[in-house]
Simulated assay, not measured.
Amino acid sequence: MLNRTLSVVATAVTLLAGAAPAAMAAEAGSGTTAFRTAVQAPDTARVTAAVLDLDRTGAEPAVYGDDTPYDTASIVKVDILAAMLLHARDHRRDLTARESAEAQVMIRNSDNTAATALWRAIGEAPGLTSANKRLGLTSTQGGPGGLWGLTRTTATDQIRLLGAIFGTGATPLDTASRNRIGTLMTEISTGQSWGVSAAADSGWALKNGWLMRTTTGRWDINSIGRVTNGGHRYLVAVLSNGNASMPDGVNLVERAVRTAVSETAAG
């Protein structure tokens, strides 16, 4: 959670069912209609979901909604930790005891003080950008100065990040780093275990983000992670903004993830 409120205007727009990447246009095209109908985002809110079935050979991410940038709020903490682990490895060292403790509370409890310390340690936005080039993210821009929660990203970029952690392909993160991030994402504190977990019928690993805009009172609510459903493992990213309240946003995200995973499984 980003405890500090920020004076940034959140544009209120209607939910759009945009085109998926070209490789998935035929598969996701019909699904986006069902997604829009089932999710029923209010006129003040916008939501996008991206899903990748890790157990389907040759699968590409299916995108539901308009895959344009959203503010990350606290989901960026996963990216910060990945960047920190790359930074430490580049310097042929492990995280210090203090950095390790900060990483744990940053992911498990969404601690903002710890996130700020690690954000500075990686070199803030330029350091995040450098790490993301290696991780394959192409549409993520770090927040200005110390405002890591105003990092901008897309649902498909978050799938790329999750793929570097949970996927089976080549990644600059070593096995120990991947396991470290993945394990922390299964240890989220009880009050923060909502979001993509709504689509899981067994295991999940996640990180959520939530931020209220002071100028509008509207909420950014995001959730990313891996879920297991029907024996398949899915990487899922759901991003939303313009929610009237945090509970409304959580409900929207959970409707979106259930629908998107169901549509992807049926595709």
Rank of each mutant, 00 (worst) to 15 (best):
A12G: 12
P144R: 12
D111S: 02
T116Y: 00
A50R: 13
V105E: 00
V76L: 12
A23I: 15
Q40C: 04
A170K: 03
T11G: 00
D90L: 13
P144C: 10
W219M: 03
Y64P: 14
I75T: 11
A265K: 06
T33L: 11
S100C: 03
A117E: 06
A103N: 10
L150G: 06
R120G: 10
M84Y: 03
G58R: 00
A82K: 07
Q40K: 15
R56M: 02
T44D: 12
A25Q: 14
T264V: 12
S100Y: 05
T48H: 06
R134T: 05
A170E: 03
P172K: 00
A12T: 10
W204T: 15
F166W: 13
T5D: 01
L135E: 03
N179H: 15
N112E: 14
R160T: 12
Q192M: 15
G29Q: 02
N179T: 15
T153D: 07
G225I: 10
G163P: 01
A121S: 11
R160G: 03
G182N: 12
N112T: 15
I224Y: 06
G58L: 02
V257Q: 02
A131S: 05
V76N: 14
V250M: 10
A20H: 00
L52N: 09
V261C: 13
T57C: 00
T37S: 02
D248C: 04
T48A: 11
A49T: 15
I80F: 13
G195A: 14
E187Y: 09
L150H: 11
T11M: 05
G169L: 00
D220C: 10
L161D: 03
E102D: 15
A88W: 00
A265E: 04
A12L: 13
G58H: 06
L235R: 05
S223K: 09
S240N: 01
S202H: 12
R255E: 14
D174M: 08
G29S: 00
A200D: 08
L95E: 08
A10S: 09
R92W: 13
A101C: 07
N132S: 12
N229F: 04
T48W: 07
E187K: 11
T214W: 01
G127C: 06
T37D: 08
L128S: 02
I159N: 01
E124I: 04
Y70C: 00
V257M: 08
Y234S: 11
S30F: 05
V236L: 14
D79H: 11
R180W: 01
L52A: 07
G136L: 07
A49D: 07
Q141M: 05
N229H: 02
I165A: 00
R213A: 10
D174P: 02
A62P: 06
V51M: 14
G167K: 01
D220G: 07
D90I: 08
A131V: 08
N208I: 10
E102P: 05
I181N: 05
G145E: 14
L2P: 04
G29Y: 08
I122R: 04
V261Q: 04
T48L: 04
T215G: 04
A22C: 03
T168H: 05
T190F: 14
D67Y: 10
D43P: 13
V8E: 02
R255A: 13
L86H: 07
V105C: 01
A265L: 03
V63G: 01
A244G: 05
S197A: 15
N109A: 11
T183R: 12
N112W: 07
N243V: 01
A101P: 01
S189R: 14
